[in-house]
Amino acid sequence: MASSNLPDRQTLYVLQDGERPLEIIEDTKIPNAATFRIYKQDHTLANMIRTQLLEDKNVIFAGYKVPHPLEPYFLLKVQTNGSLTPTDVVNTACASIIATVSQLEKRFEEQFRDKEFDLGAVDASAQQPFYSDAYADF
């Protein structure tokens, strides 16, 4: 193999045996602040949680960074106003994301049902051309 020292790609997004999924590091200098070090996750999760945290009134600061592109973890820093702990607000943010996703799932299912009904076919996919027009000239 030409590049035998190349790490397995899967180690960038799959937790290995015995690997911790996350660490919570309390900030020793700033009150009500903590850093979450979350392994084998990237911007997909980090940015979603950060934007959700910023909508919380109890959150004073929320930010994330991926310190190095070859190291598969991100740091999420959260400071609260003291009425809740950083862990609490992250849990709330996650719960809110989960709720949003399930609402969105319902909206999509309604829309898919309507669209497939409009097409006037019980099995819309069977009667529709497989590829859309973009491929017609191929």
């Binding site: 809110s96 709720a99 949003t100 909206r107 999509f108 898919f112 529709q128 051309p129 590829y131 859309s132």
Partner: peptide
């Protein structure tokens, strides 16, 4: 958040 979605076009692959 109160998400909403409107599908403008639906095909098998699009």
């Amino acid at each position: 958040m109160n998400p909403n979605v409107r599908i403008r076009e639906l095909q098998r692959d699009k």
